[in-house]
């Protein structure tokens, strides 16, 4: 091998490896995006038809379904390793998960507050930071629209209509997954 060929091999291998890792990370966005969309629509429908906001307690079932599904999605025979960017994305969304569940639990059982406003802002921030980490402008813009626009909408919209913001968030997450997957194909 010439020096040029060696450097080209190093660069190509590293690039392919990085792509494989980031492509693998798109699964998480897609999975949670679909789950969020489905849960928000189901809870919206139940709340709308019965008139009872108690159906919101179903949100607590989302992590119970989501985490085993995520574990299943990543448990493949040819396990893809993790790099710095993948790890950072995982940490961003883990922090989002902890904050969302804690704030929701506090709002339901201790200090009543506008949960939609809080969660939608957190969702927008996590999405925006993911875009920054991935250096992807469409994801940054999606996150900003969701976080800032969602905060305003969460105040203006009343009762079950607020749930449609989560539907939008879920769709944006799934779209983020598709963007990441196509970006690193």
């Amino acid at each position: 091998m010439t020096a040029q060929e060696s450097l080209a091999l190093i660069s190509e291998t590293m690039n392919n490896c990085r792509r494989a890792i980031l492509r693998n990370n798109s699964k998480g966005f897609f999975l949670w995006g679909i789950l969020l969309t489905v849960f928000s629509l189901v809870i919206y429908f139940l709340w709308h038809t019965t008139g009872s906001p108690n159906w919101n307690l179903l949100w607590f079932a989302m992590p119970l379904i989501g985490y085993p599904l995520a574990a299943l999605a990543y448990k493949k025979k040819d396990a893809v390793p993790q790099n710095e960017v993948g790890r950072m994305l995982g940490q961003i969304w883990a922090v989002f998960g902890v904050f969302s569940i804690s704030i929701s639990a506090l709002a339901v059982f201790a200090v009543p507050m506008n949960i939609t406003l809080m969660i939608v802002v957190l969702l927008g921030i996590a999405e925006c930071i993911s875009g920054v980490v991935l250096r992807n402008w469409p994801i940054i813009v999606c996150g900003a629209i969701l976080g800032i626009g969602g905060a305003v909408a969460a105040v203006l919209l009343k009762s079950e209509a607020q749930l449609l913001l989560f539907t939008l968030g879920g769709v944006l997450l799934a779209v983020t997954g598709l963007i990441v997957k196509s970006q690193y194909r």
Binding site: M1, L9, I10, T13, M14, D78, A79, P81, N83
Partner: peptide, 17 residues
């Protein structure tokens, strides 16, 4: 060199990867 290039960018990697 390819093996080292892969391992240089990750924490660890399976044989299959």
């Amino acid at each position: 060199l390819a093996v080292m290039s892969v391992l240089a960018g990750v924490e660890s990697a399976d044989f299959t990867f």
